[in-house]
């Protein structure tokens, strides 16, 4: 069976204008720099990283909302960059997105029914009102808003954050997508309902075989939902592998540091924390060599010269660090 998403050597640069009136230099933000990965059918891949690492740009590029500078994104075997008009609409129908902020991602003056029906209208998928009504009800109930009739005529502000996120999910489900891109789906929600939404996503994966790319900065929750984890730093993948392996035996020093600072809800388990000082450098002037070396606790002189590539460290587990090759 082929993968649903295949990304090869993806690169996305944003031009920034710097300098005065006369000596204008074109500089670029390297939002995504040579990233390759695949997503299998029915798989949950978590893309983890700090803000500014390029993970949100990755989500928008996968959605076809940003055009890649170079590289190929194949969805269902079709390169979305070369598609036009109708064809891209068809591919897009199979890829839907869930946003971070359920308070902002719903139009405040549309009823829930209108919001969930909107994708159907846009794609002209239903012939009559009754069919539309049925599909909206089914999507709402699949997203856990039961009974749907209680919600359909309400406005977003009458619902709680968790319910709104379910509406967003219903709006995606109504198109029966094969791939969901979830951009921080629970980070704005209360702890007590995060699990509900995550479990709902897992359920959808199980029932409908939907693949999910989950973009998040919260390493604490990814272990519960993801099959594989990809860690990004400054537009690069630095480590990718099976979730448990990455969490329990991280190979890249960045992954290790990140994991060590995730607070553990148990005062008896104090660990050695590796707090990286400073902040992620800006992605305009990238450091030479390994881009993590200025903050890396184990950096060596050669890290300033050679840019490491992803290399296997265990079964299906790769990391990009020079120290790994020397043993």
């Amino acid at each position: 069976m082929s993968s649903i998403v295949e990304v090869t050597h993806l690169r996305k640069l944003f031009p920034v204008k710097k300098g005065g009136l006369f000596d204008r230099q074109e500089k670029f933000v390297h939002a995504i720099d040579d990233v390759s990965f695949t997503v299998e059918r029915g798989e949950v891949l978590a893309v983890v990283g700090e803000s500014g690492c390029g993970k949100s740009t990755l989500a928008l590029t996968l959605m076809g909302l940003e055009r890649p500078t170079s590289g190929v994104i194949q969805i269902n075997g079709q390169n979305i960059a070369t598609l036009k008009g109708k064809e891209i609409q068809v591919v897009r129908r199979h890829v839907q997105m869930i946003f971070q902020d359920p308070y902002e991602s719903l139009n405040p003056i549309m009823t829930i029914a209108d919001i969930v029906a909107e994708p159907l209208k846009v794609h002209g998928l239903v012939k009559n009102k009754q069919e539309r009504q049925e599909r909206v009800i089914r999507a709402l109930e699949d997203a856990g808003l039961k009974p749907a009739l209680n919600f359909m005529h309400r406005l977003p502000q009458e619902l709680s954050g968790g319910q709104r996120q379910r509406v967003v999910i219903a709006g995606a489900l109504v198109l029966e997508p094969e791939l969901l891109i979830a951009d921080e789906p629970v980070s704005m929600l209360d702890v007590s309902i995060r699990a509900e939404i995550l479990n709902l996503l897992l359920e959808l994966r199980q029932m409908r075989g939907i693949s999910i790319v989950m973009i998040t900065h919260d390493l604490g929750t990814v272990g519960y939902v993801a099959d594989r984890i990809a860690v990004m730093y400054l537009g690069r993948l630095v480590e990718i592998g099976p979730a448990l392996q990455v969490l329990q035996q991280p190979h890249h020093p960045y992954t290790r540091a990140l994991l060590s600072v995730v607070p553990v809800p148990n005062p008896r388990q104090r660990r050695e924390r590796v707090i990286l000082q400073g902040e992620t450098p800006n992605p305009i002037n990238l450091p030479p060599g390994c881009r993590f070396h200025p903050r890396c606790p184990v950096a060596q002189p050669r890290c300033q010269e050679t840019d490491p590539m992803l290399q296997p460290v265990a079964a299906a587990h790769e990391a990009a660090c020079l120290l790994l090759s020397s043993g």
Partner: peptide
């Protein structure tokens, strides 16, 4: 700028 406009784009709206 609001997110529901981005959401509409993601749905595929023109």
């Amino acid at each position: 700028q609001r997110k529901f406009v981005l959401r509409a784009r993601a749905i595929g709206a023109g």
